[in-house]
Amino acid sequence: MDLGPYLLFASLEGLVHAAVLSLIALGLSLVFGVMRIVNVAHGEFFMLGAILTWWVSNFVMGNPALGFLLALLIVPLVVGIIAMFSDLLILRHLKYDPEVTIIATIGILYIIQQFALMTFGPDARPVEQPFNIRLDLYWFGFSAYKFFVIFSAIILLFCVWLVMAKTKFGLILRATQLDSEIAQAFGIPISTVYSLVFGVGAAIAAVGAVLIVPIQQAHYLMGGEPLLLAFIVVIIGGLGSLKGTVVAAMLIGISDGIISVFFSPNLAKILATLLVVVVLLIRPNGLFRTIRI
């Protein structure tokens, strides 16, 4: 294969990861933006989404597309509800103190991870792709499912943008994000908003998990790397900025794909982390975040 097609192949692979990464980072960014807390357990909600998908797809016999569709419907819902409960039972009682919350979410991280280890086991388990079609791209074949992943992520990102920009619920979220005290003084029940946002943030990550599992396999330790990359993405894009998150996810995801294919995956992570340092030095609020007084 020539360099051109090879580069295209690497970019497409990168785009698939960028799509899923932007969903995970979006959840993290939403939670930080509105609640001002860093959710270290975010990657575990992603992992939970993956192993639940495995369960659902094994539970449903017959056509793998059926199990996949069912997973796409119920897994984000279940993960979202679990996240809401962890907010209700733990975070709310800590009054969202930034430092204490970090420790608490580390605790949630281990609880979910060990729960997964005890029930799901230490093995990586594959989930069958809902449809197995290869598209012939002249130089190489590429799985149609991967295009579906990219397409689904775009749809979901668009929906999130639509909700944030055009609905009353979105307006309430933005107002809470900008000034939670004044939001309260205008009748917004911010603790309910916080629980919902924590649930929705985890559910968006779970959608990413449902989409990626047929490509990547489910494993109880799979939440660590996406969490690191999601942090990198939201730092570069600017916490709480939807546009910045998507652009940074594309940047990190695609360059990760290209560097991984041409050099090594480790080099890709090293460069991404280096980029964070540079961004923090020259634009500490992220590339797309205007400084607010």
Binding site: K168, R174, A175, L178, D179, I182, A183, R292
Partner: peptide, 14 residues
């Protein structure tokens, strides 16, 4: 203490 990044209309909407 306005919601400074929101429009006039959105502030009133709140």
């Amino acid at each position: 203490r306005l919601f400074l990044e929101l429009t006039v209309e959105e502030n009133l909407e709140i």
